[in-house]
Simulated assay, not measured.
Amino acid sequence: MFGFIRQSLALSGANLRSLPRRAWISLSMVLSVTLVVLVLLGFLAMANGFRKTLSSTGSADVAMVLSRGAFSEALSRIGTQQAHLIEEAPGIARTAEGAPLISRELVVPVDAVAQDSGKNETLSLRGVTATGLALRPKLAISAGRMMTPGTDEIVVGARLAAKYNDLNLGDTISFGRSQWKVVGHFTAGGSVFESELLADAGLVQAQFNRPNQIQSLRVRLEDPAAFAQFSAYVEDLDLGLLAQTEQAFYAAQASDISRIILFLGWPLAIVMAIGAAVGAMTTMYSSVSDRMVEIATVRALGFSRSAAFVATLVEALALTLIGCAIGVALAWIGLDGWSASTKSGANAQLAFQLALSWPQALSAVVLALGIGAIGGGLPALRATRVPLRAAMTGRA
């Protein structure tokens, strides 16, 4: 047993020391693994970034009411009479005067010109009430001031202000036939709200010809435990509405979007990994052929077949781990925290940041080791079958 270990270590060391002699072909294997790792981590970082952005949105003591079956606010419709009935629900927090802390809201798609491409992209303009602003405790003005209710003023998520034209403080931007003045930028704790423009709900209804249209109701509950009572009341009304906590609504969206991204990302990474494994196999076959005389000679000196197998496999795994380390390092430097955006369920831009984690890096390492094991396995087996006559002839 100890003899096998000593032989394996000696042959592995010799193989690794001879890598500079096969630098270019070894580099091709390293680069192919690096590319696979980068692609995989790119998708994982995107899914994780989405999940963090959406999961950080919402509170357990704020309930959302939407049409039953609506997967997003854009697909929901709530009538004025329905809204009045919801205001009478038990469990709703109220002001000292007895007014319910409830916000009638709607989201309309608007176009803005992206600074990098010069093309129109769709953003979400949310109509909110003063109560709606109070129901977002993480929302804070980072520049300028809050809009004045009843006026054509808007406040813009800081992430959007940096990416689109005419969204700086003091700018006036046209949405359809209406003009809106940007009076403030805001942050919202990294939540999805930072991807929106906020304006007075009544004015949004009037300017976009949507009189009395409501898409969602946001309700402050007396405490999180009051949600069960509130939800039961909404169900008993039998109005085709569904209540859920704001936290649960965005967590479900995060799960759905992340699942879609991973559904696309993993198959692509696996296909690329298969290609990288084939490339690794070609590299290792070339390595074995290049050292055929050496392998046969050490075999003639008493080194076992198993030691030759292990040494060749170690070489393949070493090259894949180098490629994996480079890929992880590049992904962490270039992707982690990188700002990106994509279309949400309402076909509007949703800004988020890519986020990497150590479990994701571990997934990349496992995939890389799979590439090395597959790509080095058959060539390593080939190394155990090199006949002694190759030491004299240089041929298999």
Rank of each mutant, 00 (worst) to 15 (best):
A83E: 04
Q81S: 06
R94A: 02
L85N: 01
K119C: 14
S103D: 06
S117G: 11
G98S: 11
R94I: 01
N120Y: 11
G79L: 00
I86S: 00
T122A: 14
L101V: 09
R94H: 08
A99W: 04
I102E: 11
D111F: 15
E105K: 15
N120Q: 07
S103C: 08
G91L: 05
A99H: 06
V113M: 06
A99I: 09
P109K: 03
E97T: 10
P109W: 05
P90G: 14
A89V: 00
L85I: 00
Q115D: 12
E121W: 01
H84M: 04
R94Q: 02
N120A: 13
T122Y: 03
T80C: 05
A114I: 05
G118A: 09
L106H: 02
D116T: 03
A112N: 13
L101S: 10
V108Q: 01
Q81A: 15
V108S: 04
V107D: 10
T80V: 07
A89T: 03
E87Y: 06
E97F: 13
S103T: 06
E97C: 02
E121Q: 11
E97M: 02
V108E: 12
K119Y: 04
D116V: 03
V108G: 05
G118E: 08
E97Q: 13
G118R: 04
E88L: 06
A99P: 03
A83T: 00
A96E: 12
H84K: 12
A93C: 03
I92P: 00
E97D: 09
Q115H: 10
V107H: 04
E105I: 15
Q82M: 02
V107N: 11
V110Y: 13
S117E: 13
G98E: 01
N120M: 13
G98D: 01
S103K: 01
S117I: 01
L106K: 09
A99L: 07
Q81W: 00
V113F: 11
N120C: 09
L106V: 03
P109I: 10
R94N: 01
P100V: 05
D111W: 01
P109C: 05
A112T: 11
Q115W: 00
T80K: 12
Q82T: 08
Q115K: 14
S117Q: 07
P109R: 15
A89D: 05
T122H: 09
P90D: 02
H84G: 05
N120I: 07
S103M: 05
R94Y: 08
S117V: 07
E105N: 15
Q115M: 08
E121A: 10
V113R: 11
T80F: 08
